[in-house]
Protein backbone atom coordinates (compact mmCIF):
# COMPACT_ATOMS: atom_id res chain seq x y z
CA UNK A 1 0.00 0.00 0.00
CA UNK A 2 2.71 2.41 0.99
CA UNK A 3 4.62 1.64 -2.17
CA UNK A 4 1.76 2.72 -4.36
CA UNK A 5 1.77 6.16 -2.75
CA UNK A 6 5.39 6.72 -3.39
CA UNK A 7 4.93 5.85 -7.03
CA UNK A 8 2.19 8.32 -7.76
CA UNK A 9 3.06 11.28 -5.61
CA UNK A 10 6.78 11.10 -5.65
CA UNK A 11 8.88 12.65 -2.91
CA UNK A 12 6.91 15.81 -2.15
CA UNK A 13 7.29 17.41 1.27
CA UNK A 14 4.90 16.23 3.98
CA UNK A 15 2.80 19.14 5.38
CA UNK A 16 0.85 17.11 7.91
CA UNK A 17 0.82 13.64 9.32
CA UNK A 18 -1.08 11.49 11.78
CA UNK A 19 0.67 8.67 13.53
CA UNK A 20 -1.17 5.92 15.41
CA UNK A 21 -3.99 8.23 16.37
CA UNK A 22 -6.71 6.75 18.55
CA UNK A 23 -9.96 8.22 19.74
CA UNK A 24 -12.94 6.73 21.48
CA UNK A 25 -16.20 8.20 22.74
CA UNK A 26 -17.85 6.64 25.78
CA UNK A 27 -15.93 3.42 25.31
CA UNK A 28 -16.64 3.15 21.58
CA UNK A 29 -13.47 3.28 19.54
CA UNK A 30 -14.00 5.60 16.61
CA UNK A 31 -10.43 5.92 15.42
CA UNK A 32 -8.35 2.81 15.80
CA UNK A 33 -4.72 3.47 15.17
CA UNK A 34 -4.86 5.83 12.19
CA UNK A 35 -1.70 6.92 10.39
CA UNK A 36 -1.58 9.06 7.25
CA UNK A 37 0.45 11.78 5.60
CA UNK A 38 -0.61 14.82 3.62
CA UNK A 39 1.85 15.97 0.99
CA UNK A 40 2.51 19.41 -0.38
CA UNK A 41 -0.08 20.57 -2.96
CA UNK A 42 -1.94 17.31 -3.15
CA UNK A 43 -5.65 16.65 -2.82
CA UNK A 44 -6.00 13.71 -0.48
CA UNK A 45 -9.48 12.23 -0.33
CA UNK A 46 -10.48 10.16 2.66
CA UNK A 47 -13.32 7.96 1.62
CA UNK A 48 -15.53 6.22 4.10
CA UNK A 49 -19.07 5.48 5.12
CA UNK A 50 -20.94 7.69 7.51
CA UNK A 51 -19.87 6.98 11.04
CA UNK A 52 -16.45 5.69 10.09
CA UNK A 53 -14.82 8.49 12.02
CA UNK A 54 -13.81 10.72 9.12
CA UNK A 55 -15.02 13.97 10.67
CA UNK A 56 -13.46 13.07 14.00
CA UNK A 57 -10.18 12.58 12.19
CA UNK A 58 -9.98 16.07 10.75
CA UNK A 59 -11.38 17.68 13.85
CA UNK A 60 -8.52 16.09 15.72
CA UNK A 61 -6.18 17.73 13.26
CA UNK A 62 -7.24 21.25 14.22
CA UNK A 63 -7.62 20.49 17.89
CA UNK A 64 -11.43 20.66 17.99
CA UNK A 65 -11.42 17.14 19.35
CA UNK A 66 -8.60 15.85 21.48
CA UNK A 67 -7.17 12.55 20.35
CA UNK A 68 -6.61 9.92 23.01
CA UNK A 69 -3.30 8.70 21.74
CA UNK A 70 -0.81 9.09 18.89
CA UNK A 71 0.92 12.01 17.20
CA UNK A 72 -0.73 14.67 15.11
CA UNK A 73 1.50 17.09 13.34
CA UNK A 74 0.22 19.89 11.13
CA UNK A 75 2.69 22.27 9.48
CA UNK A 76 5.23 21.37 12.10
CA UNK A 77 2.88 22.04 15.04
CA UNK A 78 2.42 19.20 17.48
CA UNK A 79 -1.34 19.68 17.67
CA UNK A 80 -1.94 17.61 20.78
CA UNK A 81 0.42 19.66 22.91
CA UNK A 82 -0.07 23.24 21.87
CA UNK A 83 -0.40 26.40 23.89
CA UNK A 84 -3.53 28.38 22.99
CA UNK A 85 -1.47 30.99 21.19
CA UNK A 86 0.39 28.48 19.01
CA UNK A 87 -2.88 26.64 18.39
CA UNK A 88 -4.35 29.84 17.06
CA UNK A 89 -1.31 30.38 14.87
CA UNK A 90 -1.67 26.91 13.43
CA UNK A 91 -5.40 27.38 12.86
CA UNK A 92 -4.77 30.55 10.88
CA UNK A 93 -2.93 28.44 8.33
CA UNK A 94 -5.44 25.63 8.18
CA UNK A 95 -8.80 26.27 6.56
CA UNK A 96 -11.68 24.14 7.76
CA UNK A 97 -14.76 23.84 5.59
CA UNK A 98 -17.52 22.40 7.73
CA UNK A 99 -20.02 19.85 6.57
CA UNK A 100 -22.92 22.11 7.49
CA UNK A 101 -20.96 25.17 6.28
CA UNK A 102 -21.33 26.58 9.84
CA UNK A 103 -22.16 30.13 8.79
CA UNK A 104 -23.09 32.28 11.78
CA UNK A 105 -26.84 32.68 11.52
CA UNK A 106 -26.94 35.98 13.31
CA UNK A 107 -24.43 37.69 11.03
CA UNK A 108 -24.50 38.83 7.42
CA UNK A 109 -22.20 37.18 4.89
CA UNK A 110 -19.88 40.15 5.20
CA UNK A 111 -19.70 39.78 8.98
CA UNK A 112 -19.20 36.05 8.59
CA UNK A 113 -16.21 36.61 6.37
CA UNK A 114 -14.80 39.34 8.58
CA UNK A 115 -15.04 37.16 11.66
CA UNK A 116 -11.79 35.17 11.13
CA UNK A 117 -10.00 38.32 9.99
CA UNK A 118 -10.83 40.28 13.12
CA UNK A 119 -10.54 37.28 15.38
CA UNK A 120 -7.56 35.36 14.07
CA UNK A 121 -5.55 38.23 12.65
CA UNK A 122 -6.91 41.08 14.72
CA UNK A 123 -7.58 43.28 11.69
CA UNK A 124 -9.72 46.36 12.28
CA UNK A 125 -9.10 48.51 9.22
CA UNK A 126 -12.46 48.85 7.51
CA UNK A 127 -11.27 49.15 3.90
CA UNK A 128 -8.77 46.34 4.30
CA UNK A 129 -11.49 44.09 5.64
CA UNK A 130 -13.81 45.08 2.81
CA UNK A 131 -11.21 44.40 0.13
CA UNK A 132 -10.44 40.97 1.50
CA UNK A 133 -14.11 40.09 1.74
CA UNK A 134 -14.71 41.12 -1.87
CA UNK A 135 -11.75 39.09 -3.13
CA UNK A 136 -12.81 36.01 -1.18
CA UNK A 137 -16.36 36.31 -2.50
CA UNK A 138 -15.07 36.66 -6.06
CA UNK A 139 -13.02 33.52 -5.62
CA UNK A 140 -16.14 31.52 -4.82
CA UNK A 141 -18.23 33.35 -7.43
CA UNK A 142 -20.71 35.07 -5.06
CA UNK A 143 -19.82 38.76 -5.25
CA UNK A 144 -23.30 40.16 -4.67
CA UNK A 145 -24.16 38.39 -1.45
CA UNK A 146 -22.15 40.37 1.10
CA UNK A 147 -25.17 41.92 2.82
CA UNK A 148 -27.33 38.80 2.81
CA UNK A 149 -28.07 36.67 5.85
CA UNK A 150 -27.13 32.99 5.71
CA UNK A 151 -30.80 32.02 5.90
CA UNK A 152 -31.37 33.67 2.51
CA UNK A 153 -28.76 31.51 0.79
CA UNK A 154 -29.11 28.09 -0.83
CA UNK A 155 -27.14 25.11 0.44
CA UNK A 156 -24.56 25.38 -2.33
CA UNK A 157 -24.09 29.08 -1.76
CA UNK A 158 -23.62 28.47 1.95
CA UNK A 159 -20.94 25.92 1.20
CA UNK A 160 -19.18 28.43 -1.01
CA UNK A 161 -19.38 31.16 1.58
CA UNK A 162 -18.07 28.69 4.13
CA UNK A 163 -15.13 27.98 1.87
CA UNK A 164 -14.63 31.69 1.22
CA UNK A 165 -14.54 32.28 4.97
CA UNK A 166 -11.64 29.87 5.32
CA UNK A 167 -9.86 31.12 2.18
CA UNK A 168 -9.86 34.65 3.46
CA UNK A 169 -6.96 33.76 5.75
CA UNK A 170 -4.83 32.39 2.87
CA UNK A 171 -4.50 28.93 4.38
CA UNK A 172 -1.72 26.50 3.51
CA UNK A 173 -3.88 23.47 4.18
CA UNK A 174 -7.59 23.09 3.47
CA UNK A 175 -9.68 20.54 5.28
CA UNK A 176 -13.01 19.82 3.61
CA UNK A 177 -15.60 17.96 5.66
CA UNK A 178 -18.10 16.41 3.25
CA UNK A 179 -18.01 19.34 0.79
CA UNK A 180 -20.76 17.89 -1.40
CA UNK A 181 -23.02 16.40 1.26
CA UNK A 182 -26.64 17.33 0.84
CA UNK A 183 -26.17 19.01 -2.53
CA UNK A 184 -27.66 18.15 -5.89
CA UNK A 185 -25.22 16.62 -8.43
CA UNK A 186 -24.83 19.83 -10.42
CA UNK A 187 -24.09 21.98 -7.41
CA UNK A 188 -21.84 19.21 -6.10
CA UNK A 189 -19.78 19.23 -9.27
CA UNK A 190 -19.55 23.03 -9.01
CA UNK A 191 -18.12 22.61 -5.55
CA UNK A 192 -15.70 20.03 -6.89
CA UNK A 193 -14.54 22.55 -9.47
CA UNK A 194 -14.18 25.12 -6.75
CA UNK A 195 -11.97 22.81 -4.71
CA UNK A 196 -9.70 22.36 -7.69
CA UNK A 197 -9.59 26.07 -8.48
CA UNK A 198 -8.82 26.88 -4.89
CA UNK A 199 -5.81 24.62 -5.09
CA UNK A 200 -4.73 26.38 -8.28
CA UNK A 201 -5.04 29.83 -6.80
CA UNK A 202 -4.01 29.37 -3.19
CA UNK A 203 -1.55 26.50 -3.66
CA UNK A 204 -3.12 24.61 -0.82
CA UNK A 205 -2.72 21.04 0.23
CA UNK A 206 -6.19 19.66 0.82
CA UNK A 207 -7.65 16.87 2.82
CA UNK A 208 -11.12 16.07 1.55
CA UNK A 209 -13.41 13.88 3.55
CA UNK A 210 -16.29 12.45 1.65
CA UNK A 211 -18.50 9.48 0.98
CA UNK A 212 -19.33 10.83 -2.47
CA UNK A 213 -17.58 8.79 -5.15
CA UNK A 214 -17.92 11.42 -7.87
CA UNK A 215 -16.38 13.99 -5.57
CA UNK A 216 -13.51 11.64 -4.86
CA UNK A 217 -13.04 10.94 -8.53
CA UNK A 218 -13.02 14.62 -9.51
CA UNK A 219 -10.85 16.06 -6.81
CA UNK A 220 -8.48 13.37 -5.68
CA UNK A 221 -4.83 12.91 -6.36
CA UNK A 222 -4.79 10.13 -3.85
CA UNK A 223 -7.49 8.27 -1.95
CA UNK A 224 -7.41 6.65 1.44
CA UNK A 225 -10.32 4.41 2.35
CA UNK A 226 -11.37 4.40 5.96
CA UNK A 227 -13.28 1.40 7.29
CA UNK A 228 -14.27 0.96 10.94
CA UNK A 229 -11.77 3.50 12.13
CA UNK A 230 -8.84 2.04 10.24
CA UNK A 231 -7.19 2.93 6.96
CA UNK A 232 -8.03 0.07 4.65
CA UNK A 233 -6.62 0.98 1.28
CA UNK A 234 -4.59 3.74 -0.21
CA UNK A 235 -3.84 4.75 -3.83
CA UNK A 236 -5.07 6.79 -6.76
CA UNK A 237 -8.77 6.71 -7.44
CA UNK A 238 -8.26 4.61 -10.53
CA UNK A 239 -6.00 2.21 -8.65
CA UNK A 240 -8.56 1.37 -5.98
CA UNK A 241 -11.84 1.70 -7.82
CA UNK A 242 -11.74 -1.89 -9.05
CA UNK A 243 -11.05 -3.32 -5.64
CA UNK A 244 -12.62 -6.57 -4.68
CA UNK A 245 -12.53 -5.78 -0.95
CA UNK A 246 -15.86 -6.66 0.59
CA UNK A 247 -16.04 -3.42 2.55
CA UNK A 248 -15.10 -1.11 -0.27
CA UNK A 249 -16.45 -2.67 -3.43
CA UNK A 250 -20.05 -1.59 -2.76
CA UNK A 251 -18.81 2.01 -2.68
CA UNK A 252 -17.69 1.94 -6.28
CA UNK A 253 -20.39 -0.27 -7.65
CA UNK A 254 -23.56 1.11 -6.23
Amino acid sequence: MVDATNDTVGNKAIVAFLHNVKKSFNGVEVLKDISLELHQSENLVILGRSGSGKSVLIKCMVGLIEADDGDINVLGYDVRHLEPKALNEMRQQVGFSFQSSALYDSMTVQQNLEFPLTRNLGLTNKTELNDKVIIALQDVGLEGTAQKMPAELSGGMKKRIGIARTLILNPKIMLYDEPTAGLDPITASEINELILSVREKYKTSSLIITHDISCARHTSDRVIALVDGKTKMEGTFDAIKDTSDADLAPFFNY
Binding site: K59, V62, L64, N88, R91, Q92, V94, F96, F98, Q99, S100, S101, A102, L103, Y104, D105, S106, F115, P116, R119, N120, R165
Partner: peptide
Protein backbone atom coordinates in the same frame (compact mmCIF):
# COMPACT_ATOMS: atom_id res chain seq x y z
CA UNK B 1 -32.15 26.90 21.04
CA UNK B 2 -29.63 29.31 19.59
CA UNK B 3 -26.64 27.67 21.20
CA UNK B 4 -27.92 24.18 20.48
CA UNK B 5 -28.45 24.93 16.83
CA UNK B 6 -25.05 26.60 16.66
CA UNK B 7 -23.60 23.47 18.09
CA UNK B 8 -25.49 21.19 15.74
CA UNK B 9 -24.47 23.19 12.69
CA UNK B 10 -20.83 23.32 13.87
CA UNK B 11 -20.86 27.08 14.24
CA UNK B 12 -19.27 26.69 17.64
CA UNK B 13 -16.47 24.64 16.10
CA UNK B 14 -16.12 27.22 13.35
CA UNK B 15 -15.70 29.93 15.95
CA UNK B 16 -13.10 27.98 17.72
CA UNK B 17 -10.99 27.54 14.60
CA UNK B 18 -11.42 31.25 13.92
CA UNK B 19 -9.38 32.09 16.97
CA UNK B 20 -12.29 32.72 19.28
Amino acid sequence: AELASMKVTEQIDAMEVSGT
